[in-house]
Design a protein around this nucleic acid. Structure first.
Lengths: 161, 161
DNA sequence: CTTGCAAGTTAGAATGATTATTACTATGGT
DNA sequence: ACCATAGTAATAATCATTCTAACTTGCAAG
């Protein structure tokens, strides 16, 4: 069943590539196949190393280009979850973050509200337990992604030109 | 009032530095002051640039060292929210992520459950609106941080030595 | 107040991931 | 089969972060 699922996802993604007007090159096919059948959220590095045996001439930049193209076409998502990098937060009270996709600004969002602090609701904890048995959840963080007021006006302005 | 708040946080953090057995150097004081009175989640880069005028001899590594020390002492948190970097996710169905703090592995967590997809609950949306008026939330992502089964056993093993 | 030493700092080099550049090549429509 | 365009390869450039080795300082005991 899992085979079928990932096969479908490959097909879907390849269709998406064409629909987005992107050319279907061997490199892209290989990257799509590898990415779509992988649950482990690989890095560009990992993909490159896995694909190199099959396409020894492929360049590293192609992996990034393709991943960017896929992201832009809405066929995959770039994440940044790696620990110990980027920004530092002096606020140790459990809270969430609003991140502007456009300018990258980050704002704290207090976790008031009915659902309580940084503790998972039962349903969510169950969902984690199902996909990752034995995973001990220590904290839950919510990231609200969107566009801040400043960027919204800036974008509509430049769009109207 | 805001002045007082950040002043308190500086005091608290400095106290924490001493409590953790860390030496209180001018560089650390400066970094703590700057970080604790800042809501914008600065990068190491930004902190360094802001502090350089006051401490021209300070090295870049000191900023990182201090931030690491503060994180280790539980006085601040390192985040990675920047867009377009790190890992790639082929799963475009709204879902959450379980991240192991120890090995960095990422697993998808389906967002079944009563609270629905990637849409914020009213209370959370309100909270965002209060701190960032005009922020348009496009998606909500949850990150469950913790320790995966494999790392949990590995840690308890090495701890018992 | 002085002294000693561990912890901290400095400067710069090393590392590693990502992005940009440029000339070459292959794809897909006609 | 041909051509224009989009994609690729190779390499250089950039940026953040970590490491190294020598020097300096906070601070506690004398």
């Amino acid at each position: 069943m899992r085979q079928t699922e990932s096969f479908e996802r490959v097909e879907q993604m390849l269709a998406g590539v064409r629909a987005a007007g992107l050319k279907l090159t061997p490199q892209r096919m290989a990257i799509v196949k590898e990415l779509a059948s992988d649950e482990s959220h690989p890095t560009a590095q990992e993909l490159f190393e896995r694909l190199r045996p099959g396409l020894p001439t492929m360049s590293f930049a192609t992996v990034y280009n393709t991943l960017d193209a896929l992201s832009a076409a809405g066929l995959c998502a770039a994440m940044s979850l790696s620990p110990g990098s980027g920004r530092f937060d002096p606020n140790m009270i459990p809270h969430h973050h609003a991140v502007c996709d456009s300018c990258g600004a980050v704002r704290d969002v207090p976790s008031v509200g009915v659902h309580g602090e940084g503790i998972a609701e039962p349903s969510a904890a169950e969902a984690v337990a199902q996909v990752a048995p034995g995973f001990e959840v220590r904290s839950v963080e919510r990231i609200f992604r969107g566009v801040c007021a400043a960027c919204a006006t800036r974008q509509s302005r430049s769009k109207s030109v």
